[in-house]
Nucleic acid binder design. Structure first.
Lengths: 259, 259
DNA sequence: ACGAGAAAATGATCAGATCACTTGGTCATT
DNA sequence: AATGACCAAGTGATCTGATCATTTTCTCGT
């Protein structure tokens, strides 16, 4: 190891960061709760404001806290997590994107199988909600598309369509995350979230390429049914086919690009 | 998305952080390379030093850069990664530890199978090196243990033994990481690293509990052989048995604690 | 050559001030 | 009474400039 002696000289910043984390833990604060102002933290720990801010930035980068201008410091969404998506990840290249999907195709099917065995009640509801939301978005988009046939396709309409795509992509990712949460294993859920959250904007391209929104939804629904029925093998199979299908389409499109 | 309008108010800090990342990318700097001094960065971007430092702390938390007192700013080990281990993760509870191992038992076997299909040359060498290192550590530890039987077991000897344990745990984790890298999929490697790096100190306890270091090594070696031979099914099976075995021991020990 | 000590470079921390944003309350208008 | 404009306090964001601590490099005497 790097420090065989074992005595690690923890800098002031390290101490500050961990102290603030324990402070949050001691107060049993949860995600979204307000923490404490920068100035009062500086007073509390007898350090200067910039130092506190550096420590907070570090915590912020891991999703442990959130700084809202003019409002205060709040407990972040990723507090206490072991695995994180890199918040500063660069837009992945197409190779990296394929790699990412391959990773998902490897990881998520067994997770789906586990979910079918455990199937947490709350997670089932979330999956159902995600499916409903996706269906509504698709219906709205189809409606808009029908309108576009008659009226001229304006730039504004295109913007709205793009926004819808982004929203749909987000909801679809939500389904995968809810599926992972249904496994009852928080660590697995964190892993799956880390590989799905990554750059939604690029994932949007996936959906854009994949294109067949309805088929996507149907496949998701089938996976949901399998989990609901408690059929691990089917859930695993369907999830694998789903992701392999997406992967195949992407591969195809990357070799024969259009537009 | 969260901001339907699409206009995201990027703060000065966001711009700074991404600008510095692109600066690193443009210069084609790699892990370990020296970057630029805080002051010169402040000059370059026309901002004050504390602001630069906040941005750097954010980058530091994701492993993109590293600040060394008195020396300079360097490119970090995790530059460009998508998935990260939380550097501020709290020591996991026993429940969380079991969860973590379950996640590994689910993810790593298919990864091993993929590794057996691809088996990158460099990664095979690394695995071999990890195995050799582990064997040497075990031999050294056994030697020390024999000595302990004769001479009195002093506190110092115990410390050395603990350090050996930690080193061995580290090397064993290295094997799993090298295995994942052999899959040729960087994203998968990052995921596996994220679930293995997590709190080596606690993983140490695992090994401490697991106890049978030689069996562990033998199982690792068997996995290596399967990957080397290009037998995906065997590699997957052995990896699954290995992790399930560890998991079983842990579960057992947690229910019937000793010491 | 070589090692010790000085000097330079660089990160760490501090202090106080000013600007920008959010929030809640006040109060006039309707 | 409900509504909306305005104001003020709280709070984060950024700046300026300085001082301390650590590392690295250079210099110099032996």
């Amino acid at each position: 190891m790097s420090a065989p002696g074992g005595v690690v000289r923890r800098s002031l910043l390290d101490d500050l960061a961990t102290s603030m984390l324990t402070l949050i833990a001691d107060r049993k604060l949860a995600s979204g709760d307000q923490f404490e102002s920068v100035r009062s933290l500086a007073d509390r720990f007898k350090v200067a404001v910039p130092t506190v801010r550096e420590a907070l930035r570090r915590l912020e980068a891991t999703g442990a806290v959130e700084l809202r201008h003019g409002s205060g410091v709040y407990v972040g969404r990723h507090i206490g997590r072991l695995v994180l998506p890199n918040p500063l990840a660069p837009p992945p290249s197409s190779d990296r994107l394929i790699e990412l999907l391959q990773a998902r195709a490897l990881i998520e099917p067994p997770v789906a199988a586990l979910a079918a065995r455990v199937r947490t009640e709350a997670a089932l509801h979330r999956m159902d909600k995600d499916l409903t939301a996706a269906a509504e978005l698709i219906a709205a988009a189809d409606h808009a598309q029908l309108a576009e046939v008659n009226m001229d396709l304006t730039a504004a309409a295109e913007l709205i369509a793009a926004a819808d795509h982004a929203q749909l992509a987000e909801v679809n990712m939500d389904f995968h995350r809810s599926l992972a949460q249904a496994s009852g294993n928080a660590t697995l859920a964190e892993v799956v979230e880390s590989v799905t959250v990554v750059n939604v904007r690029e994932q949007l391209e996936i959906l854009h390429l994949h294109g067949d929104r309805q088929a996507d939804l149907d496949e998701h629904r089938a996976i949901y049914e399998a989990v609901l029925a408690g059929d691990p093998d089917l859930a695993e199979l369907l999830t694998r086919e789903h992701l392999d299908g997406v992967l195949a389409v992407i591969n195809n499109r990357l070799q024969h690009p259009r537009s």
